[in-house]
């Protein structure tokens, strides 16, 4: 049974249909990538899953419960962790405190302290633990945010363009981090358009085009699918290169 499922989900803004009758299903334990050219509706679909706004039609189910109308915090409490596209950390608070605020949802006392140190080390942020998070580099802020998402101990990790603005080395490191998490059993949904990064991590891929599901399947099938190549080349393939 899928851990996350969208059934015939649509979103209209005035006259514009950004997402149209999308069926998406994420199986437990997989890394699933949502790709597509600019304007394909990826980010809108992501925001529907996260609960930024409600869909115009359709149903969203998570861990076998209907979350279509649930507020974002309620979805998080059910076991989603979310990292939105724009990095947003608590800039004036210290790095350590950022993690602490996320960790205190699940951990207490000594376990909290231990987990904080473990995550700082995992994210290579130990040296910056007492710095205001706003002073971290862009890539470090992205990692801190991923760390905050992990701190919630999620069943499903949702990442919207986690490598935006990262150097190739940082991007690769992020990919390895995600694979490592997946190896411990965490399900991951990633919205991306960096194909190299997708090849590095993806197991299954859903391609969106003009708000609809264009193709889906294993990563190897998708990258060789002439139709997928067509929509990418036809629509400004150059953006990520």
């Amino acid at each position: 049974m899928p851990i996350l499922e969208t059934r015939q989900v649509s979103k209209r803004f005035g006259g514009l249909t950004a997402v149209s009758d999308v069926d998406l299903s994420i199986e437990p334990g997989e890394i699933h990538c949502l790709i597509g050219p600019n304007g394909a509706g990826k980010s809108t679909l992501f925001k529907l899953i996260v609960g930024t706004y409600p869909p115009s039609g359709g149903e969203i189910r998570f861990r076998d419960g209907d979350i279509t109308q649930a507020k974002p915090f309620a979805r998080v409490q059910r076991g989603m962790s979310i990292k939105m596209q724009a990095p947003s950390v608590f800039k004036e608070l210290r790095t350590r405190q950022n993690l602490h605020i996320a960790l205190q949802q699940k951990f207490h006392r000594q376990a909290l302290v231990d987990e904080e140190e473990r995550l700082l080390a995992l994210l290579d942020l130990t040296a910056h633990a007492d710095k205001a998070a706003g002073l971290l580099s862009h890539g470090q802020q992205q990692w801190l945010e991923i760390g905050m998402a992990l701190a919630l101990g999620p069943e499903l990790l949702l990442l919207d363009e986690p490598t935006a603005g990262m150097s190739p080395e940082e991007t690769f490191k992020t990919g390895e981090l995600i694979k490592g998490l997946n190896a411990t059993g965490m399900t991951v949904l990633v919205v991306e358009h960096d194909m190299a990064f997708i090849r590095q991590i993806a197991q299954r891929v859903t391609v969106l085009h003009l708000g609809k599901v264009f193709a889906r399947g294993a990563i190897d099938e998708i990258v060789n699918d002439p139709g997928v190549i067509e929509i990418y080349l036809g629509k400004g393939h150059g953006r990520e290169h």
Partner: peptide, 10 residues
């Protein structure tokens, strides 16, 4: 600091 971020932490 950031109400949206806080909400995304549940």
């Amino acid at each position: 600091e950031d109400p949206q971020r806080a909400e995304l932490l549940g």
